[in-house]
Amino acid sequence: MSINISSLTYEVDNKKILNEISLKIELGEILCVLGPNGSGKSTLVNLISGNFEATKGDIFFDKVDLKKISIEDRAFTRSVMTQSQPIVFDFTVREIIEMGWLKRGNFNFSKDFKYVFNQVVDEASIENLTEKKFNVLSGGEQKRVHLARTLIQAWRPSNSNDPKYIFLDEPTANLDINYEKKVMEIVRKKADEGIGVLLIVHDINLACKYSDKIAVLKDGFLLGFGSPENILTEEILSNAYDLPVKVIKNPLSFEY
């Protein structure tokens, strides 16, 4: 079970934003996408989520073409967290998280929901925020609320084997190192539970510590895709960021 992306190309006004990208997101693994600003990382997430339509190339979710999956079914398979837009009306945090709950069409709304709600709220460390208005929260707190919403969307009952994927576009932006570590640990835990994760971060150290596979993008081209040891080389990173990069193994083995 995996998401297979082959020769993915995306053009806007004849300008190629992504160029022949081929990747694979496996269940139970974290794939981290690195790259400088404007390299096409967020576009990639939008394409795999189905928000944009690829100019060329294929995206297969567990051998089913993304184009053939209905908008509703897509929501059950993958959940996405990106840079969010401001919310105009004064929703409570509880209501925002509830928006990720897809189980519809029956009256058993409260049974599973209460349990899962408490679980994701606990995971995102926002227990004391749930009854507050979303708009009074700080940027970091809002981020964690959105994370909780993303997690509740990806929830599956323990007896279910439905493949689930999470795509996270800079989930640690605006977070202090304490929460940064917490978020990454949740992501790791989700992957260990069998969820496939696509992660965009800017922090190369975070990527190296937590991910199973790394892809490096630059100007819409894939510079490398593979295990962190093979990809996080001085050659590839220097090329990606146009900076001389020196790779030093952390004597503390990347512990904070």
Binding site: N51, A75, Q85, M99, G100
Partner: peptide, 20 residues
Amino acid sequence: ARKLDLLQLGEPEAYRLGID
């Protein structure tokens, strides 16, 4: 009504939550 709630997250987000 529920779909309009989800739309408050922004169109791309609402789409990802299964809204046409």
